[in-house]
């Protein structure tokens, strides 16, 4: 399969993400330049972490106007897989592909640390290789990761089972302490109604090699690869 990693001015996890796709998982992967209109036949588009356009107006606010994002939106509406990590998640919110908004972390500081997240939905292309309730040790690195959604929106998310990851204790319990950035209902990642666009604040690409302290993030890439390969096999049974 092929990953396309979008490069905005100010993206800074683009190379890390490409490295994991190519070197760790031996998949095809290419950068997609924000000024282009070409998705280069990617099976899964990743909007990587970083500070697109310096995050100057509001995190992700300007990146959504990049020429390439028109194509990404079309791709997503056609059911293509789109994964937004950190700044990529913020861009998906600005783009309206996912509901809600990001506020500053509750302690008003940038937070870079390993956290635990619980997988609360394995019925997605991004988590199918995981187990329900499985806890992943995975880093976050953000200033604006305090996910907010109003009550109606939250009820919708719940009804459609759109909440995929929640910040938790190592044993999977939710607590005020484990909800490091103050997100509504400890939400760390969510998926759209169609189930093909996922946004998450934690960085799976930083937790895909044991030497970096944890490889719990692998399950996300493994899920995507399994999903796409399965789809391809369905298309070409021989």
């Amino acid at each position: 399969m092929k990953f396309g990693v979008v490069v905005f001015p100010g993206s800074n996890c683009d190379s890390d993400t490409l490295y994991v796709a190519k070197e760790v998982f031996n998949q095809e992967a290419e950068f997609l330049w924000h000024k282009d209109h070409d998705l280069k036949n990617s099976d899964c588009i990743i909007l990587p972490g970083g500070f697109s356009y310096g995050d100057y107006l509001r995190s992700g606010a300007i990146a959504r106007f990049s020429p390439l994002m028109k194509e990404v939106r079309k791709f997503a509406l056609d059911g293509g897989l789109v994964l937004g990590i950190c700044n990529g998640f913020q861009i998906l919110l600005e783009l309206g592909l996912l509901p809600g908004a990001m506020l500053r972390n509750k302690n008003l500081k940038f937070l870079c640390q390993h956290v635990n997240i619980r997988i609360d939905n394995t019925d997605t292309p991004f988590t199918l290789a995981g187990n329900l309730g499985q806890v992943l040790n995975i880093p976050i690195a953000h200033f604006d990761g305090n996910y907010y959604i109003d009550n109606n929106g939250f009820n919708d998310l719940n009804k459609q089972d759109q909440i995929v990851f929640r910040y938790s204790e190592p044993n999977g319990n939710l607590s005020k302490k484990s909800n490091v950035n103050g997100s509504t209902n400890s939400i760390a990642g969510l998926i759209n109604k169609n189930g093909n666009v996922l946004g998450m604040m934690p960085h799976p690409e930083r937790a895909s090699e044991a030497i970096l302290g944890s490889d719990d993030g692998r399950v996300i890439f493994e899920s995507i690869i399994q999903f796409i390969n399965r789809e391809k096999n369905l298309e070409n049974p021989c």
Binding site: G49, K109, A141
Partner: peptide, 16 residues
């Protein structure tokens, strides 16, 4: 102090 710094970007940091 250190958790305000992104000390992991570029995925090379082995000791924090």
């Amino acid at each position: 102090v250190f958790r305000q710094y992104d000390h992991m970007v570029q995925t090379n940091t082995v000791f924090f």
